[in-house]
Amino acid sequence: MSAVHVPDFSARNYASFFAAGALCCTISHGAMTPIDVVKTRIQVDPAFKGLGIISGTRLVLTKESPAALLTGFGPTAVGYLAQGGAKFAGYEFWKKKTVELAGDQETAVKYRTAIYLGSAGIAEFFADVLLTPLEAVRIRLVSERGYANGLASGFTRMAREGGLRELYAGFLPILCKQVPYAWGQFTVNEFCHELVFRSMDEDTKRNLSRTSSLGISLGSGIVAGFAAAILSHPADTLLSQINKGHGPSGSMAYRLTVLAREAGFRGLFAGLGPRMIMTAGLVSSQFLMYGEIKRALNAPPGIEIHKD
């Protein structure tokens, strides 16, 4: 059984975790804006129904212009700057707390799946408080052409016309989307690393080259990205519908139930292919950048509770 070292992270360490998470998420999500635009159109625009990422991109270019592929870049960059910092720093914080609550190394390793899931879920909840209004603006800009010129005007219009209620209308579906996403992202990544390291002896692990370490992070991130996309996609589809104003009136839970029934299994997974490609790129690049930025900031590594 591997030892569990619980470091005493300082406020500066958590600030470094936040900065690394914020930068890796805003860079990766910002770069993926064109794919996300096409994915959202496939989910909410009848003209894009049944199209894939390549054919959908061609249709956007034909009907509009290359600039349309950057629609929503502002709220994407700002939203994921806040959300990414809170999520990554929160995961480090809650994993440390839950490992301490476990009491000893054997208990922590035995219940590591629950620790990963719980830490990711709690961190994502608080991160989504920051993300939800900006995600609502992004989806409105992408799905309703001409709604506003950018982040500031879109946020102002939505706040003026609907207030906090409209800005946070998607909070429940965004939780349903982002919490499973975080579960897949962090938990699957942890277990991919564990599987790789369990196949190595101690000397090999200690003497891993930089290239090998980056390769492990990249491969683990790709697998975790696929898992995150599959787990979160139905709620992602419903979130796009909610923010475009679809569905009946009533409580959010009722609206989600009706929309899910109307969409059916096939409809809930519309656009999954493009999103799997996008999410694999997002998650793998985030973990690579997160590690490199932490190293540049001299931040300590996170807690490992892998089973030997």
Rank of each mutant, 00 (worst) to 15 (best):
G250S: 06
P34A: 10
L208R: 01
D236V: 08
Q43Y: 12
K63L: 13
K95P: 03
R12Y: 10
I54E: 15
S284A: 08
A108F: 07
N243I: 06
A182V: 04
P133N: 03
T156D: 12
A11C: 09
G245A: 07
S285D: 03
F186N: 06
P133V: 00
C176V: 08
I174Q: 07
G56C: 12
Y290K: 03
S199G: 04
S232N: 08
K49R: 15
G150Y: 08
R266Q: 15
K87D: 11
K49T: 15
Y290F: 09
S284P: 06
L268R: 11
L164S: 09
Y14D: 07
R295F: 07
R165Q: 10
E124C: 05
Y168P: 01
S240D: 15
V44I: 15
R58P: 06
D236A: 11
P301V: 02
F93S: 04
F197A: 01
L164A: 12
E166Q: 12
R160T: 13
P301W: 00
V44G: 05
N207L: 00
K177Q: 15
M200F: 09
F48C: 14
A224Q: 02
S199I: 00
V283H: 00
R41W: 06
C192E: 09
I139M: 10
V78R: 02
A152K: 15
R112D: 02
Y147W: 14
T204I: 04
D308A: 13
P66C: 08
I42K: 12
K97R: 14
K97A: 12
F18K: 03
L288Y: 04
A136D: 01
L259H: 06
L134I: 01
A31E: 05
A224G: 04
C176A: 14
G184H: 01
V6W: 08
R266W: 14
S10Y: 07
S240M: 10
A31Y: 07
L208K: 03
L164I: 06
Y80P: 01
V137E: 02
V283P: 02
A102H: 10
G267I: 04
S119P: 02
P180N: 07
F171V: 05
K95Y: 03
P300Q: 03
G79E: 02
L256I: 09
G291W: 01
P46D: 13
Y91G: 05
R112S: 04
A114W: 10
V4M: 11
P301F: 01
A280V: 10
L117F: 06
P300V: 05
I139N: 08
L69D: 07
G52I: 09
N149R: 14
P274F: 06
K244W: 08
L259K: 05
